[in-house]
Design a protein around this nucleic acid. Structure first.
Lengths: 206, 206
DNA sequence: GAATCCCCTTACCGATTGGTAGGGACGTTG
DNA sequence: CAACGTCCCTACCAATCGGTAAGGGGATTC
């Protein structure tokens, strides 16, 4: 459902793909539609022909990401217990393919920006995805008695841990050097799995 | 050292203050120097007179924040045990004064952007601050044997949990409504303290 | 073969961007 | 009083922003 239904990568698909990469890298205000078009060997009017406005193009990028996030759950094995599934889910989210890093960057930018552009934009795409995570957490033994606020706070904390890492790669490479950053990156998945397990086992606080 | 050495709030200080607020809200590219000046009842040339370029103004804002972060440690009681201090530190970081939310937003934006503007900018200001946190974590019982990579990964996870929350307030308010978001916000500090304690007690993974 | 539609072009628009040049008001210093 | 430095102004600049208008090439359809 999230993958292409057209035989080959159409110009339109290439536009969205390039827009996703550039918006993730530089943010909504940091990229112009002319730049996106230029990287595809086109003019900005080609972009405007397909999407009308820059905002609409950005919205489609977010929509695509929301779809990919929904697909993420489907990739998990349905049989396993809830704690294991949540753990797998968070680990799957940080597999450092460029696409997933782009996704984290874009979501974080959207969270920072959407209060500004004052349109709900990606927020509403995110709601079902957050609700699903909260539901999965509630199914974990020991968490069924937690309040919604507790569940949501915990999910936000875990999401923050995951996305912050995905996003901060280049910065930490600049600070600690390539090899130290790589070492941290190699160990991060295990460390994250460990942290998720520990947090889930402890249950909500008082 | 981080606080003012001039008697009253000079125009220059007011400029930095306003710039911090606007950069946090809309990002480097999302704010023009003319807008910053206009909110102070000045023209952009007044800004350029003091700082020369927009980049330099932005750099000073980051520098000021790095100083404030350094001060954060000094605010903690020195006598308490390392685990308690780390816990206090993270909780102090999320006290939702507007200033601290601005700070979180700006740091997150800087992490997202600085790979783009390709100047180390805030990265190097952050290094001592990160090293200090890693040092505090190493002093916690059970963590002395952890590798640098493990310590750093854990710090990043905790920082992510904290900053993500600080930043996502408006978005979650949009998604879940004001009262639900407020409930989550009220409980977040306790939940964070709980999580930090659990993670510290569990020690690093295998 | 004419009409139509799709995709993308050149040409242009007003508004805004970061930044430069130069000057005026004001206080301090000689 | 003259000179000077600080602070902020108006005026202006080329470049770029998102977006509109109009048209052309190529394939499809009648």
């Amino acid at each position: 459902m999230a993958t292409a239904f057209k035989p080959s990568a159409s110009t339109r698909d290439r536009m969205i793909e390039k827009a996703r990469a550039l918006f993730a890298e530089r943010g909504f205000y940091g990229v112009s539609i002319a730049q996106i078009a230029a990287e595809l060997g086109l003019t900005k009017q080609a972009l405007l022909h397909h999407f009308g406005t820059k905002e609409r193009l950005y919205g489609l990028v977010l929509e695509q990401i929301a779809g990919a996030l929904a697909d993420l759950k489907a990739e998990l094995e349905p049989g396993t217990d809830p704690a294991q599934r949540l753990q797998d889910w968070f680990v799957a989210m940080i597999s450092d393919t460029p696409l997933r890093i782009e996704r984290s960057r874009l979501l974080m930018r959207e969270i920072l920006d959407n209060q500004v552009r004052a349109e709900r934009a990606g927020s509403w795409y995110l709601k079902p995805f957050l609700d699903e995570l909260v539901g999965m957490l509630r199914d974990v033994p020991g968490w069924s008695g937690a309040t919604d606020a507790q569940l949501r706070a915990t999910i936000v904390q875990l999401l923050g841990a995951v996305n912050y890492h995905a996003v901060s790669g280049p910065t930490f490479r600049g600070i600690f050097g390539t090899e130290a950053a790589q070492a941290m990156n190699d160990i991060f998945a295990a460390q994250l799995r460990h942290m998720v397990r520990v947090v889930l086992e402890a249950g909500p606080g008082a």
